[in-house]
C-alpha cells in the first residue's frame, strides 16, 4: 500500500515539471512564426509595433516594461524597506501587528481595483503636480513637455504601490533574522538606534533586501491589468516619463482579443508573452539566489570560520 501511494504522489509532483515543460514548448511553438519571419533579434530590438502594417518590433513594449518597473523600484523599494525597518526596529511593540496587517492588506486589493482607482482618482489628481515637475525640471533627461494623462510615471507609481507589500514582507523576514547579539553589540558601543541600524542591521540584511527588491521587480514586470488601464496603450516609445506608452503584459491583454484572426499578430503577442516570461524568470532566478544566500548565512551563524568547541569550557 505504501509504495503505490508514494508512486502516485511522485507522479503528481512530476506533473508540475510536465506542465512547465509543456507550457514553454507550446508557447515557443506558437510564437515561432514571428521569430522565423523576423528573427528573434529584430523582434526584440526593432522599434516599431504596428500590427496594421504587419510590423512587429517589440522594443517599445520591452522598454515600457523596463521603464515602468524601474520607476516602481525607485519609488517602492525605499518605502517598503522603511516600513519593514519601522515595524521590526523602531515602532512601539503594540503597534507592530497592526502595521504589519495594514501593509499586508495592500496586497489584498486586486490589480483591477487599483487600476479603477488610478483612472478616476490618481491620474486627474496628480496631473497638475506632474505638469509642474515636468516644467520645472525640464533640464533633466526624460522630463519635460506636455504631460499625458495616462503615462509611464503613473504606471510606475501604481506598480510601486503594488510591490510594496511583497518587498516589505520579505524585508521584514530578512530583518528579523539579524541576530539580537549583533544589534546589542552595536548598542553596547553606545550607538543610537539609527546608528545600530546602520552598523549592524542593514549590512547584515543587504543581500536579503536585494533579493526582496528583485522579487518585487518580478511582480512589476508581469503586472498586467492595472498597467493596461493607466499606461495609455500607445505602441510609440515615449520620449519622457510623462509620455504614454505600452508594456509587454498590457499589449497582450489589450490586443489579444482582436488578434485571434491574424496569425502573425497572434504569434507576436505570444512571443511577447514568452519574452516577458523569460525576463521574469531571470529576475526571479537572481532574486532567489540572493534570498537563499541570505537565509543560509543567517542559519550558519555569523562567523565564517568558527571553531566551536567547548573543550576547556565544559
Amino acid at each position: 500500500m505504501d509504495t503505490p501511494v508514494r508512486r502516485i504522489l511522485t507522479g503528481v509532483a512530476a506533473l508540475i515539471l510536465v506542465i512547465i515543460a509543456f507550457f514553454l514548448i507550446r508557447l515557443y511553438i506558437e510564437a515561432r512564426p514571428v521569430f522565423s519571419a523576423y528573427g528573434a533579434t529584430h523582434f526584440v530590438f526593432d522599434n516599431a509595433w504596428l500590427p496594421s502594417k504587419n510590423l512587429y518590433g517589440a522594443w517599445p513594449l520591452i522598454a515600457g516594461t523596463l521603464i515602468t518597473s524601474a520607476i516602481a523600484l525607485i519609488i517602492g523599494v525605499p518605502i517598503a524597506v522603511a516600513a519593514a525597518l519601522f515595524v521590526t526596529e523602531l515602532c512601539p511593540r503594540p503597534l507592530r501587528a497592526t502595521l504589519t496587517i495594514l501593509v499586508d492588506l495592500l496586497a489584498a486589493v486586486p490589480s483591477v481595483v487599483y487600476g479603477l482607482w488610478a483612472v478616476f482618482f490618481l491620474i486627474p489628481k496628480i496631473k497638475p503636480a506632474e505638469q509642474w515637475f515636468s516644467d520645472t525640471f525640464s533640464f533633466l533627461p526624460f522630463v519635460g513637455g506636455q504631460v499625458a494623462g495616462p503615462n509611464y510615471f503613473i504606471a510606475g507609481l501604481l506598480l510601486a504601490t503594488m510591490i510594496i507589500p511583497i518587498v516589505s514582507a520579505i524585508s521584514r523576514e530578512v530583518l528579523a533574522t539579524v541576530p539580537q547579539e549583533h544589534k546589542e553589540a552595536a548598542l553596547a558601543l553606545g550607538a543610537t538606534r539609527w546608528e545600530m541600524i546602520r552598523l549592524a542591521v542593514l549590512p547584515y540584511s543587504r543581500a536579503g533586501i536585494s533579493g526582496a527588491a528583485m522579487l518585487g521587480l518580478g511582480r512589476a514586470l508581469g503586472e498586467t491589468i492595472a498597467v493596461t488601464l493607466v499606461i495609455g496603450n500607445s505602441a510609440h516609445l515615449g520620449s519622457t516619463i510623462f509620455s504614454q506608452g505600452y508594456t509587454l503584459a498590457a499589449v497582450i491583454a489589450n490586443e489579444f482579443g482582436e488578434a485571434a484572426s491574424n496569425p502573425v499578430h497572434r504569434a507576436s503577442l505570444i512571443a511577447a508573452g514568452l519574452v516577458l516570461f523569460l525576463l521574469t524568470l531571470v529576475v526571479n532566478f537572481i532574486a532567489r539566489f540572493y534570498v537563499t544566500r541570505a537565509e543560509k548565512k543567517m542559519l550558519g551563524g555569523a562567523p565564517v570560520a568558527e571553531p566551536v568547541a567547548t573543550g576547556a569550557a565544559a
Binding site: 508540475i16 507550446r26 508557447l27 498586467t224 497582450i252 521574469t280
Partner: peptide
C-alpha cells in the same frame, strides 16, 4: 518557485493556446 514568478497573463495565454 519558477511558477510563482510567472505573470498571470502568461497563464491566460497558455490556457488559451
Amino acid at each position: 518557485d519558477v511558477m510563482t514568478g510567472v505573470p498571470s497573463v502568461a497563464f491566460g495565454l497558455f490556457v488559451y493556446i
